[in-house]
Simulated assay, not measured.
Amino acid sequence: MQLLIKTFHGLESVLADELKELGASNIEVLKRAVSCSGDKELMYKANLHLRTALRVLMPIANFKANNDDQLYKKIYDFDWSQFINNKTTFAIDAVAFSDTFKHSKYVALKAKDAIVDQFRDKTGARPSIDTDQPNVQINIHVSSEQFTVSLDSSGESLHRRGYRDPNHKAPLNEVLAAGMLKIAGWHKDIPLLDPMCGTGTILMEAAMLACDMPPQYKRKHLGFMGWVDYDKDLWLALHKEAEEKIHYPKVNIVGGDNYPDAVDIAKQTSLDFRLNRQIRIVRSDFKENLPTAPRGMMITNPPYGERLEKGDINGFYRSIGSHLKKNFNNWQGWLITSNFEALKHFGLRTSSKHTLYNGPLECKFVSYDLFEGEMKAFKKKVNRSRRIRE
């Protein structure tokens, strides 16, 4: 079985490492996706365990079409009885990057007509459309005149872990937050601070990672559960195996924010997932947050400037850099921002820089090694300690 797993730009290699840990083979890094080979068990595990995946797709057909009639015929001639019957509900999601097929919704409509007509012609009856929770979600990707048709085994996007109200628009996607933690190399033994935590996305992803809690642990429905070959016993066995590995270690994960509503939401979220003992959240201004241990890691998503004037946001970023330089010696600081101009005013030298996307926003995820004194003296100290170890 071939699988295509979607992710955000910049997280492809992180996702590939996750798939390797799950036992996938023939792993290939693509643009905003990773392909691999595996069986049904791997597909179920991928949906349950992958922290940096958005969707797990199973490609079932590839073809070229130069016009509407060819598209209709290719879809009509495919044997859909392998996956759909008259009692099955289905929906089609299409994405088109093509001069010929310019409208994704039209592609979806044309494909829907072809599938329905095939069943009507062969059986005299037709399957129904359900756009809310179909038994089978079909994904069509169009690049120029090349079509890839897949079954979406995830259904709802995997960034939805179940710890946030779907009507609440958080500034940071859950998949992106998980990817940031992995890029930074954070693990449960490293004290973690998010001094501008908002509703707690980074904190929740860190706590779930520390506790070996699968990101879809509380998910009630996944796309493959509506398929004709759904193996309920296998899914329940994999879910039980994962549940038995969840543990609640003592960790140092702290968050702060000066918006009381955000703090209340973050606290309730951690309580709902029984992670309130792993996460400590306080209402505080950024400058009131101090190191929680001699060494640790700060990862945060500061305001990009939507609610601040240009001068204010530049000054705010400068104050963040000054606070870290003054108070967080021997810590590593990470922040993500789409405000590249404000980032220039941070006042610290970056030790690494990564390009990521938070939805449509291009962002820089940057790190700072914090230390006392000048960079030259710091490097000399590091090199001396390396020589001693060698």
Results as ranks from 00 to 15, higher is better:
Glu288Asn: 14
Ser143Leu: 13
Arg283Gln: 15
Met196Pro: 02
Pro260His: 09
Met225Gly: 05
Leu4His: 09
Leu172Trp: 02
Asp272Arg: 11
Thr7Tyr: 02
Asp132Gly: 00
Leu3Phe: 15
Asp121Met: 03
Asp117Val: 01
Asn66Lys: 15
Phe101Pro: 08
Glu145Met: 06
Asn85Ser: 12
Asp285Gly: 14
Gln216Phe: 01
Cys36Trp: 02
Asp194Phe: 00
Gly226Ile: 07
Pro249Phe: 08
Lys45Leu: 15
Lys310Val: 04
Ile253Arg: 02
Glu12Tyr: 06
Asn85Thr: 12
Tyr217Arg: 12
Trp80His: 03
Thr300Lys: 00
Asn258Gly: 01
Asp68Val: 14
Val14Glu: 09
Ile190Pro: 01
Ile336Ala: 01
Thr355Glu: 09
Ser385Ala: 09
Arg349Phe: 04
Gly347Ser: 03
Asp231Ile: 01
Thr199Val: 15
His49Ala: 11
Pro166Ser: 09
Ala242Leu: 11
Lys310Ser: 06
Pro191Lys: 10
Arg51Ala: 13
Pro291Trp: 11
Lys267Asp: 03
Asn252Lys: 13
Cys36Glu: 02
Asn173Pro: 00
Ala177Arg: 02
Glu205Phe: 11
Asn358Asp: 08
Gly305Thr: 03
Met298Leu: 15
Asp79Phe: 02
Asn383Asp: 15
Asp132His: 04
Cys197Thr: 12
Ser143Trp: 01
Thr300Asn: 00
Glu41Thr: 13
Asn339Trp: 05
His159Ala: 05
Met43Trp: 10
Val254Glu: 09
His9Phe: 10
Phe340Tyr: 08
Leu30Gln: 11
Tyr217Ala: 13
Ser319Leu: 11
Thr201Asn: 06
Arg295Ser: 14
Gly347Val: 05
Ala377Leu: 13
Leu181Lys: 11
Asp212Gln: 14
His103Thr: 11
Thr131Arg: 15
Val107His: 07
Asn26Tyr: 09
Met43Asp: 03
Ala170Met: 04
Gln278Thr: 10
Asp231His: 02
Asp231Val: 01
Gly198Asn: 08
Val175Ser: 08
Ser367Trp: 11
Asp369Lys: 13
Leu4Gln: 12
Pro249Gln: 10
Asp233Leu: 11
Gly162Pro: 02
Asp229Met: 00
Phe346Leu: 14
Phe273Arg: 03
Leu42Gln: 02
Cys197Asn: 10
Asn339Lys: 06
Asp152Met: 10
Ser13Cys: 04
Arg280Gly: 05
Thr7Ala: 05
Asn301Gly: 02
Phe328Leu: 07
Phe365Asn: 08
Val29Leu: 05
Phe8Val: 08
Thr100Lys: 12
Ser98Asp: 07
Asn301Ser: 02
Leu54Phe: 07
Tyr217Met: 14
Ser104Thr: 10
Glu341Arg: 09
His323Ala: 05
Asp189Phe: 00
Glu241Gly: 01
Ala16Pro: 04
Met43Pro: 00
Leu30Tyr: 00
Asp39Phe: 01
